[in-house]
Amino acid sequence: MEERKPILHELYVFSEWKPEPEYLQKPDNILPENLSALWRWLKFFGPKKSLLDSVSAFKENQQKWHIALGDEGKVIAVLTDNILEIRTKRSEYATIAARTTVNRDAYPQWRKVVWSPDCSFVAVAYGNGVVSFFDLTASNLFNIPIDCNRPGGLECTDNTHAVADIIFMPLRVKDNKWNWEVLIVTYDGALRAFLVSATEGCSLQHTFRFAGGVAAVAHSAAQDTLYVAGVPRGSLIHMK
């Protein structure tokens, strides 16, 4: 029987991000212990939360920071509380290739970071639904606001229009003016398609609304099909 020899594994830590401390104030409990227990029992037998409430609670418990890989890990984008960093495999992610500051988000768990297939764009969706496009130098190229009719113009202060996914698609009609077609789908069921370019910005092409909202969405390039979860009637939309 062969003797088992120990194998030494070496783990490299190229970068480490430390979150800023959060100071939480514990509320004073004004109810006696027996009344608190009674209140918990009343809540248990009371109305149950909807699925949307459960999904929201799950999202709120996720990490606030986001990491997106581009071109199978050749580039990464790290979004912390108010910093967007871009690092490359060329330096083994040890050095910062580009960095910029972003606004702090009241709903950081609802943010989303997506690379374009050619890594020329990194899109950052904030919790309120605004989507910002950056290049490899972390320069803010343009912003896509949300279609919000609330007071205050285009900038909503809640997560009503939070983005479910950002999908980069090849142009259906070849045009040297534009680089990609981008689908922005929000949880409230809105789909907007834009043509985007580093020099021309963005141009709205068409809109669509899924009845009942959207829980998740995925695009299959091979079948040119958009799969949508959470729509009461029909589970997929064929995009041609």
Rank of each mutant, 00 (worst) to 15 (best):
E72I: 10
S56L: 09
R40L: 15
Y126Q: 07
V114F: 01
K64T: 10
K18V: 13
K48H: 07
G127Y: 02
D118M: 04
I96N: 12
K64P: 03
Y23D: 10
G70R: 12
S116L: 08
N61A: 11
A123N: 07
V131S: 00
A68R: 12
P108I: 02
L51Y: 07
F58T: 09
V102Y: 00
S139K: 14
V55P: 00
K89I: 15
F44R: 10
L79D: 02
I67V: 15
K48P: 05
Y107W: 12
Y107E: 09
F133L: 03
K49V: 07
P21D: 13
L31A: 07
K64Q: 13
R87Q: 04
G73Y: 08
V113W: 04
T95S: 15
A98Y: 04
F44D: 12
V113E: 01
T100D: 04
V102C: 01
I76N: 01
L69H: 12
F133Q: 00
E33I: 11
Q25S: 13
E60D: 15
Q109W: 05
S139W: 11
T100R: 05
Q62Y: 02
P117S: 03
K26G: 08
W65P: 05
I67F: 10
N82L: 06
Y93D: 03
V78L: 05
Y93E: 06
L24D: 12
K26P: 03
A138V: 02
F45G: 03
L51S: 07
G73Q: 14
H66P: 06
D135E: 04
L31R: 11
L51W: 08
T100E: 02
T100Y: 06
K18Y: 07
K74I: 08
I86F: 08
K112I: 06
N61Q: 14
A57I: 08
F58S: 11
K26E: 14
L42I: 10
S50V: 01
K112A: 03
R99Y: 08
V130E: 00
L136W: 03
V78F: 05
L69S: 15
G129A: 02
R99F: 07
E85W: 03
Q63C: 10
A106V: 10
S50I: 00
D71I: 11
S54T: 08
W41V: 11
E60S: 10
L69Y: 15
F134C: 00
I96L: 10
P117M: 02
G129M: 06
K18D: 03
F134E: 00
L31N: 09
W39H: 12
P47H: 07
P108F: 01
K18H: 04
L51T: 07
P108D: 01
T137M: 14
S139F: 12
L38P: 01
N61R: 11
I30P: 02
P108H: 02
K26C: 06
F121A: 06
A123K: 08
R111V: 00
L24M: 12
Q63T: 12
L42S: 04
S120M: 03
K43L: 15
I30V: 13
R111L: 02
G127P: 05
G127E: 03
P47L: 05
Q62P: 00
E85C: 06
P117W: 06
F121N: 10
S36M: 12
L51I: 07
I96W: 04
G127I: 04
V102L: 05
L24V: 10
K89E: 11
D81R: 14
W17K: 02
T137A: 11
P21T: 09
Q63K: 12
I67H: 07
E72Q: 15
V114D: 04
K48M: 04
A97T: 13
S56Q: 09
R87D: 08
